[in-house]
Design a protein around this nucleic acid. Structure first.
Lengths: 192, 192
DNA sequence: TTTATATACGGAGGCTCCCTCCGTTTATCA
DNA sequence: TGATAAACGGAGGGAGCCTCCGTATATAAA
């Protein structure tokens, strides 16, 4: 019953403003942390606050837009690692990568909580990417008998997200990396 | 050169208001999360906002006051466990206790980040309690050869704090408990 | 080109929160 | 029963969140 809506070409200014907003948000997040005032982002983008809200109804939507690509990279890295190393080693390396990712793009941490469970739908895309990556790696390693067969991918992700907590503190990265090793040791079957 | 200041007995209303504020804050934290508006806390306590700020100059100071006792309990539990179980087992049980503690008094989670490193001085007392507890347990277990000798207490704490991240999500507790087991497995010397 | 209109813009305005400052009140002590 | 140090309370300035709607403009049709 629904006639194909004769869609009009999206307005050029709209797209331009969207880009400006994402760029401004990225900059803002980077040097002011994940709770920059949205009004400031709008100011930086030289755009009205109303425009910001039209494009990104919530702060999360904006963060999501900024970090979609980074998350995608992480997902692709999982496949690359799976291809070039033994399953357990691939998992290990990916976890290390994850940690280093946080260490660099600290702001991504703001979105982490939603990766495990409850987040808003807006993160769904990112969440699926990461969850999928972990699941593939864990299942491969478990299937190959290189880690405990009952390992829950969600648990692993939760641990990783947890390790990311408190990044920005001195010595965080080293500690997180040690924890990854301990986690791997805990996952090996003979650990029993 | 400083004569003993002839201290006057503290005013009764002051103490009473302090109590009311702590009670109101506890209630507020419990059913509205760690970012209740301080104005609402003051309202609940039936006290002016100025009074709240005089007693607790920062939001952290208030949280600290609310949870000081809980933290102390956790510290004492460490000693009790150390007395009644083998070192590694004591560590394990304490970690479980820690998780369950978070599960119940969720708000304590708000103070967790500061346990590891950077927090404001106001948390110092709590931080020392917990850090001390972990350190005692880890060192005992390591000394007894029941966990890797190079285990860093800070890493263990960081992992625990990390596991606590995302509490309030369905299945969190079970996941956290599984992670504690994995962590213990990762810490056992023969894990090598 | 000109016109019509769907889209998008911008920011004023209402609300809430943070925190400070200071005039008023009150509990303690002499 | 004062005198006064201590505490109270809330107005008020600043800032952020988000909505609403009058204005402007890019697109498509004439």
């Amino acid at each position: 019953m629904s006639a194909a809506p004769p869609t009009r070409k999206p307005r050029a200014d709209s797209q331009r403003n969207r880009e400006r907003l994402i760029a401004a948000a990225k900059a803002g997040f980077t040097d002011k942390g994940a709770d920059v005032s949205l009004e400031e982002v709008a100011r930086r983008a030289e755009v009205g606050i109303g425009t910001l809200y039209r494009h990104f109804p919530t702060r999360e939507a904006l963060i999501e837009a900024v970090y979609r690509r980074e998350v995608q990279n992480l997902g692709e890295a999982a496949d690359r690692l799976a291809a070039e190393a033994a399953p357990a080693e691939a998992l290990r390396r990916w976890m290390v990568l994850f940690i280093d990712y946080i260490a660099t793009k600290k702001v991504i941490a703001a979105t982490l909580e939603s990766l495990v469970g409850g987040g808003s739908d807006l993160y769904a895309a990112s969440s699926v990417q990461i969850t999928g990556a972990v699941t593939r790696l864990v299942e491969a390693a478990a299937g190959a008998g290189q880690i405990r067969p009952d390992t829950q991918p969600d648990d692993v992700l939760r641990a990783l997200v947890g390790f990311a907590y408190g990044h920005a503190q001195p010595g965080w990265r080293e500690s997180a990396l040690r924890l990854v090793e301990i986690l791997m040791a805990g996952l090996t079957p003979q650990g029993r």
